[in-house]
Design a protein around this nucleic acid. Structure first.
Lengths: 236, 236
DNA sequence: CGGGGGTTTGAGTCCGTTCAAAATACGTGG
DNA sequence: CCACGTATTTTGAACGGACTCAAACCCCCG
């Protein structure tokens, strides 16, 4: 169960500079703080379910959230990941629709729920909020468009290499010897859904990458001996 | 070659109610009109090329425009279609990037080019413009997300049926006998790219749909004997 | 009437899926 | 700390949807 926290300062939030609230005046920041509800979440919990009525958004302070879409036939896929600083559910909020996906906690997370009234008020008080959401939405469209194009023009091997590189940029670090190290923050099952495939095929592809010494998995730890070699593979 | 038209009134444009300029005051509307340049375009012409520097947007008055993405390896795909009322290139304009795709004229079209200075000015003068672009971007993200999910969870047959239904809503009409009629406004080659496949496979799928009397193509004329039957096929 | 692009048909191939089972990792209680 | 049961991951074999390559066809336009 989510464990409620008494009070919390958005002004002191380390992610504020990356959120849509970054330009708020102290006064409006106070309004935001008074209208939001911070919570701790454990992996497996959901912030909201696909199809639910929208009553606010979630601002991620720490951890990792995934948006999962499930089809009527049971097919499931991870649509995108949300890191600290990301506002989850803003799309559906701003279009006044129901949630398209289920927001699932993938790593222990701390997130703040912001209710409808507060966001609406802030959108009115400060036009920068709407502008930030516009920039965010433009980015999301671009990402999804690239995803779509990739899914049609690249085979799984290249898509996976690309995904690994994206994850490396977010969660990895370079070692002293120049190789890359990465702890994949999600289960193989979810990694498969993110890459647009099934666990079996992912497993085989990973195996092939290991034999070629391009990307070496051991559990969820990944070593990339030669980053440039991976880049060469992806970009023709 | 585009043929320049002397003057044109945005206030009298039949699509204005569907554009991002719908809320402009007469004064700002005059600003828009003075800063835009109307043109006629023939099929095959391009409004801009993938990779070009962005210097404005195109507002479609009539006709049909397609956004085509070409990969380094020659793979090409139609990303989306633009009908009258749509503003083409706004994404790249607002993100100050280069064009992601090539905007290609698919049907004889009339479009107005609006330069950077004019849009920037209007965005400052009237906040409703930014809000409209936000709503537009949210819709584009949703569309592309649905595209992406469909491409992974539905086979070509269902995707094509879905696409035909979308085209029917835009370009088709119901006949007296209750059947649907549709003139597909693009070549099969482009239809294939839009459906995320190649012409050969599209042709085979169309053939199968005809033998089942679900969707009957003859050239680019399409008859849908039973719309409900198609809907049943798509949704489980 | 003769190109020439677009469309269709045919045959073969491959990438990725499905189904099934083995192997491994993991959490929990003894 | 180890044993056990469960979930995840891996491996194996077979299938299938969509692609590729190649050729025939067709329709439109000069």
């Amino acid at each position: 169960m989510p464990c409620s926290v008494q009070s919390e300062s958005c002004g002191a939030c380390p992610n504020r500079a990356y959120t849509e609230w970054r330009d708020l005046t102290p006064e409006n920041l106070a309004k935001l703080e008074s209208g939001m509800r911070p919570n701790d979440y454990s992996p497996g919990e959901v912030l909201y379910h696909q199809g639910d009525e929208v009553d606010g958004v979630f601002c991620i302070k720490s951890g990792l959230i995934g948006e999962r879409h499930v089809e009527a036939d049971g097919h499931s896929m991870l649509v995108r990941l949300h890191q600290p600083g990301s506002t989850v559910g803003y799309q559906e909020f701003l279009t006044k629709s129901t949630y398209r996906n289920t927001a699932e906690v993938l790593q222990p997370s701390h997130a703040c729920f912001i209710d409808r009234a507060t966001i609406t008020e802030l959108l009115i008080r400060d036009p920068s909020v709407g502008q930030r959401f516009l920039q965010r939405s433009l980015k999301d469209t671009e990402d999804m468009e690239k995803n779509y194009v990739s899914s049609k023009t690249m085979d799984l091997r290249r898509r996976l290499l690309h995904l690994i590189l994206v994850l490396y940029e977010r969660f990895g670090r370079e070692e002293l010897d120049g190789s890359g190290f990465l702890k994949v923050p999600i289960a193989k099952k979810d990694l498969a859904e993110l890459a647009g495939t099934v666990p079996e095929t992912l497993s085989r592809t990973i195996k092939k990458l290991r034999t070629e010494n391009l990307v070496v998995f051991s559990g969820n730890d990944v070593v990339i001996p030669d980053l440039d070699a991976v880049l060469d593979e992806i970009y023709d």
